[in-house]
Nucleic acid binder design. Structure first.
Length: 421
RNA sequence: GUGGGCGUAGCUCAGCUGGUAGAGCGCCGGUCUGUGGCACCGGAUGUCGCGGGUUCAAAUCCCGUCGCCCACCCCA
């Protein structure tokens, strides 16, 4: 039994293979390019941290912390966990490296794998990838919120993502939100009988969650519930209004969604979510918001903060569904060499072409000529460089353009010149 | 954690009411030993997810189990 057990990737993890990985690279390179134009620098944080860091920042009672973390005892018995997200780590690093002393605000972005032990489904994996950014320190100026959102939208636009829609809301601060939550809870209690079991449970655990219930039967009731926008304190209301003005100023279209709540404890005031098509029931590609109290909660000075996280797996899924998948990676030149005597020349040609930046396929064993061209064709090569005894003897190499079958003679120097044109 | 669907060649799948397995694509070779894409011919690969049961006989029926997918919950 043990001898013929086949290994396979564990549930919720997967291999990313070519040519799909080319799209992943394009997405990540675009992130580096776009984010740096907004003055963000890349931070790389560890893939595991003390469990308590996540528990305190994300919230002990959230599903992420209470049942989805991969936690284990290190050899010295301290509990460590694979990161379920990166904001907590970035804040920890901000404090640990005294980044409050840097010119404010500090703008950082990251990308990499996160881990949550959930049941996998479309657009949801146990090892999944996020691309995120955080702005820490300085003020909580609404323009910062708007610029961060503008940056995500610019990133998506650069990738050609179609159908991305921004939902926006404010969930107040530690002064006004609790009052609203109590009001909501009271109102929900009155209609408890009309709600499903999940929502009934949420009345106690997290009333805000009732707002984004998908149950058709609850939609009528939800529409009548009090809305937080009407219960924000004056500073929060002013901040929210200013964020919206700043989005308009930047030409960023948004849709106010009073039912948008965020699941992680640290969010306050501005919250937003971007949805994209083709993601099954997981339609959010990006979620984010302001978290002014988080750094302090983790032992730092009182610090303003806002950030977002993009689900890279979902982003790529949506890109693929809308036909943005990359072409198979081909070769620029396939070297069809014939006869052992030509091989040294073939090796030299490959080296020169690769040095000039071309993707070259140099067959390791001699093949029949027809076979070689067939192989070149299957690999999607643009050209076949034909090196037979004639070419080697005369120094006039034959270059065949596979698409139209034409061919021409070049010296080595002319060839490089021709290909580089 | 809960619910539904599905597990047959590398991939997509067929295989009716049981008689120990097939197609297409792909791959390899040949027609074609200095000219690919087309066509034709040929070839290799499966413990029919795994275990047990019923039966003379199981891919097919029954039970169990594992895995994958989708959805709920929750989240990016």
């Amino acid at each position: 039994m043990a001898t013929n057990t086949k290994f396979q990737a564990i549930r919720g993890t997967r291999d990313l293979l070519p040519p799909e990985t080319a799209l992943w690279n394009r997405v990540e390179q675009t992130a580096h390019a776009v984010f740096s134009t907004y003055g963000f620098g890349e931070i790389r944080v560890p893939i595991f941290e003390q469990t308590d860091l996540f528990a305190r920042s994300i919230g002990f009672d959230t599903d992420v912390v209470s049942k989805e973390m991969y936690s284990f005892a290190d050899r010295d018995e301290t509990s460590v966990s694979l990161r379920p997200e990166a904001t907590a780590s970035v804040c920890r690093a901000y404090i640990e490296h005294g980044m409050h002393a840097l010119p404010a605000p500090v703008k950082l972005y990251y990308l990499g794998p996160m881990f949550r032990r959930e049941r996998p489904q479309k657009g949801r994996y146990r090892q999944f990838y996020q691309i995120g950014a955080e702005v820490l320190g300085g003020s909580d100026a609404p323009a910062i919120d708007a610029e961060v959102i503008e940056m995500v939208m610019a990133f998506f636009a650069k990738l050609g993502l179609e159908g991305a829609k921004l939902d926006l809301n404010s969930i107040g601060c530690r002064d006004c939100r609790p009052k609203y939550v109590e009001l909501l809870r009271a109102e929900l209690s009155k209609v408890k009988e009309k709600l499903g079991p999940d929502s009934q449970r949420r009345i106690e655990t997290n009333p805000l969650r009732v707002l984004d219930s998908k149950l058709e039967s609850e939609q009528g009731i939800i529409a009548t519930l009090p809305r937080i926008a009407a219960h924000l304190c004056d500073p929060c209301a002013a901040h929210y209004t200013a964020v919206k003005h700043n989005l308009v100023l930047r030409g960023v279209a948004y849709h106010e969604n009073w039912r948008l709540v965020r699941g992680l404890d640290y969010y306050m005031r501005t919250t937003f979510e971007i949805i994209a098509p083709g993601l099954g029931s997981q339609n959010a590609v990006c979620g984010g918001g302001r978290y002014d109290g988080l750094v302090e909660l983790l032992g730092g000075h009182p610090t303003k903060g806002i950030g977002f996280a993009i689900g890279e797996d979902r982003l790529i899924l949506s890109l693929q569904e809308s036909g943005k998948a990359p072409a198979a990676h081909g070769r620029d030149v396939y070297i069809a060499w014939m006869g052992e005597k030509t091989y040294p020349t073939a090796v030299r040609a490959a080296r020169a072409l690769r040095g000039a930046g071309f993707a070259v396929e140099l067959p390791a064993v001699e093949q029949k000529f027809g076979k070689a061209l067939g192989h070149a064709d299957k690999l999607g090569a643009r050209y076949a460089l034909i090196l037979g005894e004639d070419e080697v003897a005369s120094g006039q190499w034959t270059l065949k353009t596979l698409a139209d079958g034409t061919q021409a003679k070049f010296t080595e120097a002319e060839l490089l010149q021709y290909l580089r044109r």
